[in-house]
Design a protein around this nucleic acid. Structure first.
Lengths: 250, 250
DNA sequence: CGGAAATAACTGGTACAACCAGTTGACGGG
DNA sequence: CCCGTCAACTGGTTGTACCAGTTATTTCCG
């Protein structure tokens, strides 16, 4: 096999995860997948260090991150207890979940994130139209214009699409929306292949994006929300690949 | 001063923050408040350890958490660079921001989180009505019933209110909503005093909550969304204390 | 003189060992 | 039986040494 062939194959970019990342991921998956029930006590740091054959500090770094994520609660003197991530974990966990799929059905997770994107995006569009300052509005219009020029390259359009929405969310003046948007973008990016054709209709609707930008520019919140809804609810309501899980849950 | 007097005073629950927490908070505030511009390089671990007069391990734990939060990007060999938290930080940052206010106007942050709560809550109510299984629906109805019994104790009602909404969000079957809900609850809790009277109207509207539960039980998504909207948008649209910042941003 | 390769001086990553500081539960005296 | 004491856990912190990448400098060859 020639070197050119090797380079064309797009390998994984060399895992090379740090030791503490490894420990972090393993324990996270064990908790999320139910290996450790909520309330259960995790093995001691020294014991974990021995089990993973790493230094105790690496375990500590991992545990601190798990604590920040809301998966465990460590307390000096007492044992480290597992929390119920459905109750204590924040949206940032979605990124971790998406990154190392398998523990949770990726299909469902993607659908959920798209659903939330629609919910937040619609309201952000409304708020952006109602209370964004002139500079951001101008940037939105400009971004929407440039967005259309990239058709029909879906990869580039996806990137530009994120830029447009980032501006809209920014224009909403809602920090929570902004942070949630970041979480969702990171999460969907981590999944890698967000069903490419499921969102093709949305991405290729250049006119729809320009209508949205126009509504934002003219300060018409309701119209902006309507156009945003038209764009964002398409991939959720009409999936090209039938999404399992809806019946499975019932 | 008698012991009883001491106990009645409700002191701060003894700060006792760990060393790495201290370092974490300081650097986080420095970044969020703009002390370090995005792209700038943070001092080396050894230098930071010297500046804070702590061991390097403590600094490392703090940096790892900052990285997970999306505030910095550490890379072996290279320097640790500051990221733009408006672009890379997830919703979990809201909790950190709320906890140690000051760096960001708390008023605005609370308004944003309530706004997002409304946005997500309305859609979650709709989805819960449409696709929640019988067990969750029954739990929602029961929780709404018990909720009314707690009036007029606002503290207890607030707690029960969260329980009701947690069930509804759970019933929506959307993991992203669930995680975002957790982030928002943790964030508002961290603020401590979410303007108590601003939400009094919502909390005391027992009938409204029961209407919502009834709509969920009968599977009427649109009605559930309407009732949810009535409950959740009240504190946002009619603040008892005029919220500054809206004009200040324009 | 120009540019590429070796290198020195950083950076973060990991390890071992020891000790401090809380928590827990068992043990023994009242 | 109850309560204080103490020993054996737990996590928290420190120091040091070294490994592993990055980066800027220096050096040497064409």
């Amino acid at each position: 096999m020639s070197e050119a062939t090797l380079l064309r194959m797009a390998f994984d970019p060399a895992p090379r995860v740090s030791v503490s990342d490894h420990v972090f991921g393993r324990i996270r998956d064990a908790i999320v997948s139910g290996g450790y029930a909520p309330g259960e006590t995790l093995p001691g740091e020294r014991e974990l260090a021995g089990a993973f054959a790493v230094n105790r500090h690496a375990v500590r770094e991992a545990l601190r991150r798990l604590q920040q994520l809301g998966l465990v609660r460590v307390s000096q003197g007492g044992a480290t207890r597992v929390l119920d991530w459905r109750v204590h974990a924040g949206l940032d966990l979605a990124l971790s979940l998406a990154r190392s799929g398998d523990v949770l059905p990726v299909e469902t997770l993607v659908r959920d994130m798209l659903e939330m994107r629609a919910c937040v995006g619609i309201d952000a569009a409304r708020l952006c139209a109602e209370r964004a300052d002139a500079a951001v509005v101008a940037a939105v219009v400009r971004a929407a214009e440039e967005y259309g020029d990239l058709a029909p390259d879906l990869d580039l359009m996806n990137e530009a699409n994120i830029a447009v929405w980032r501006l809209i969310v920014r224009g909403s003046g809602n920090t929570a929306y902004q942070l949630a948007f970041n979480s969702l973008v990171a999460g969907t990016f981590a999944v890698g292949d967000v069903p490419p054709d499921a969102r093709a209709a949305e991405l290729l609707d250049v006119a729809g994006h320009r209508r949205l930008a126009a509504a934002v520019a003219s300060g018409q919140g309701t119209a902006a929300a309507r156009h945003a809804r038209a764009l964002l609810t398409a991939p959720v309501t009409t999936p090209t690949t039938p999404t399992p899980g809806r019946e499975a849950r019932a």
